[in-house]
Amino acid sequence: MPKPQTAAPTGLRDILVGLTEEGRGDETASALSVGLSLAGLTGAHLTIQSAARHLTLVAGAGWGFVNDLVVEENRRLSARARAVAERAVTEAALEGVSCSIEVPALAYPELVGRLTARARLADLTVLDAEARELDLDRDLIDGVLFGSGRPLLVVPPGCDAFSARRILVAWDGSAQAARAANDALPFLRAAEAVEIVSVVGEKDLSTAVAGAEFAPHLARHGVNVSVNSVPVQGDAAQTLERQASLFGAEMLVMGAYRHSRLKE
């Protein structure tokens, strides 16, 4: 369990947490816990979108029984989504956090579009990580990453409070890496230690701006920064995961790249 964050990131005024009720019964709530904790730390307003996935009715004669089941399931999912949102409002009030909720019931594509559009109005969106490759939550992550133009914090299972005392910044000199690091400045300034790490050997970085050249920029923003280059072991993701563990990082900052779901 991470220790509570002591230094508060500055500049965050609106935080959005996206939750989705799909009826599986195994939905995680780490994003909500982290969002509440971060809003309490920064004094930001918290918006919770607790959405229910709306199942589509089947057209045609003879499908009445099936449609009755679909209607009942939609009622159940909406009730569960609202219950989650109302519990969150109560928790926010106890923590002294300003909070508003949305409880839409939408079909698959509209649900992704709604969260993506709402994310454009927030300083930061917080979502739960999803291990399954083909899952609505994965599409929500992709939608916010590539469609909102705003930063996204993806929270792994088991996190019950925000903490980012030590942060690893993945750096390859790309526009995506620069944008991610800039978006993360509130967290980088508040961290005790930040390491810029470049993975060497996976792709050609000979013409890229080196991490050592980027570090002074962060230092001028008051970031306690160091630089490291590590040889690739396995692939870049595995190497970064290993380095994050060695550094004791509680947050990994990296740019987002479009890959096919099959390649991922």
Rank of each mutant, 00 (worst) to 15 (best):
V225K: 13
F187T: 00
A7T: 04
I101K: 12
P104K: 03
D139K: 08
D128P: 07
R53Y: 12
L46G: 09
T20L: 15
E130V: 05
I167E: 03
V154G: 06
D142W: 11
S50V: 05
A39E: 00
Q5A: 14
R76F: 09
S100F: 02
D235C: 15
G18W: 05
L134W: 14
Q243I: 09
E102R: 15
F247C: 08
L152H: 04
E195Q: 14
F65K: 08
V126P: 09
A193V: 01
R261V: 05
I101F: 11
L41A: 12
T20K: 11
V199A: 13
R150F: 10
G211F: 14
G62W: 05
G158V: 03
P4G: 04
D235S: 14
S148I: 04
D128K: 14
F247W: 11
C99S: 05
A215F: 08
I167Y: 13
V126L: 15
R24C: 05
Q243Y: 13
G255Q: 02
L124R: 08
C159A: 07
E72C: 04
P216I: 09
R53G: 06
T20V: 15
L168E: 03
F247D: 10
L240C: 14
D235I: 09
R261N: 00
P186D: 08
L46S: 07
E202I: 02
T42I: 05
E110S: 08
A161E: 00
N67W: 05
G255Y: 04
A52Y: 02
L262A: 12
D172Y: 10
V253S: 13
I48L: 15
L16W: 11
A184L: 07
R261P: 00
L124K: 09
V112N: 03
Q5F: 10
H45Q: 06
D123V: 06
A191W: 09
I15D: 03
I48C: 14
S245L: 06
L69Y: 10
L55P: 00
G23S: 03
A31G: 01
L94F: 06
P104V: 01
G255E: 00
L124G: 06
G143V: 00
E213Y: 13
V230T: 14
V253K: 09
V103L: 13
A93E: 00
L41F: 11
G25Y: 02
V112K: 08
W171P: 01
T90V: 09
A244V: 06
V34N: 10
L240V: 02
R261C: 02
A170K: 12
V253C: 09
D26A: 11
G211D: 04
V84K: 09
Q243S: 15
G35M: 08
G11W: 01
E91F: 09
R120G: 13
L111Q: 07
T28R: 15
P157A: 03
C99N: 01
A191F: 13
R220G: 12
S198E: 07
A119H: 03
V144L: 12
G211Y: 09
R220W: 13
T239E: 12
D160K: 08
V144E: 05
V232Y: 04
R114T: 03
